[in-house]
């Protein structure tokens, strides 16, 4: 990545124009031509720097549900439990973390009722208690990082 790539990433993480010629509008603000901007975005996507270029949706407004859940897994069972949890297609991601609650995963489903079912299934399969911590308030969601 060169300095122009960094300027593009920093500028467009915050938002992208919704207009008839959005690349042209964004390029103008960055002092680039539309062609240069599109070529660089293609390369950044191909290089894997950008996971994608588009919208993030609010699952709840679309009728779906998302929650964060945790397990306290005995060390010797960790791999086996991770396999059981990750086998559920509703698990969006799963991290091992440093705490007595050492496995943290996101469950995303098409309906709110389905969350409870996935949790019950995981508890039955693992004989462990799932700590369900759905958000109460969202104070900030940015996912923006200066590069």
């Amino acid at each position: 990545m060169d300095t122009v790539d960094r300027r593009i990433v920093n500028a467009l993480q915050g938002g992208f124009p919704i207009s008839e010629c959005p690349y042209e509008d964004a390029a103008r603000d960055l002092g680039l031509t539309q062609g240069e901007l599109i070529e660089r975005l293609k390369r950044l996507c191909a290089d894997g720097v950008l996971s994608r270029f588009g919208p993030l949706y609010d699952a709840e407004q679309l009728g779906g549900a998302v929650t964060l859940a945790a397990l306290s897994v005995p060390g010797e069972r960790f791999e086996a439990v991770a396999d059981l949890v990750n086998a559920h297609p509703e698990i969006a991601h799963n991290y091992a973390r440093d705490h007595a609650l050492n496995m943290w995963f996101v469950i995303a489903t098409e309906t709110p009722e389905r969350i409870r079912q996935v949790i019950e299934d995981i508890e039955a399969e693992t004989s462990l208690t799932v700590y369900n911590m759905p958000k109460i308030n969202e104070f900030y969601i940015g996912l923006n990082l200066a590069v």
């Binding site: 993030l56 949706y57 699952a59 998302v66 698990i91 969006a92 440093d98 469950i107 995303a108 996912l143």
Partner: peptide
């Protein structure tokens, strides 16, 4: 307070339920 560093990422992809959301943003 407590600080929980991630030790390992097992799975990261959008959950497959038609429309993708930010998986990090549960």
């Amino acid at each position: 307070h407590a600080v929980l560093f991630s030790r390992r990422r097992f799975k990261q992809c959008g959950a497959q339920y038609g429309i993708r959301t930010a998986p990090e943003a549960a």
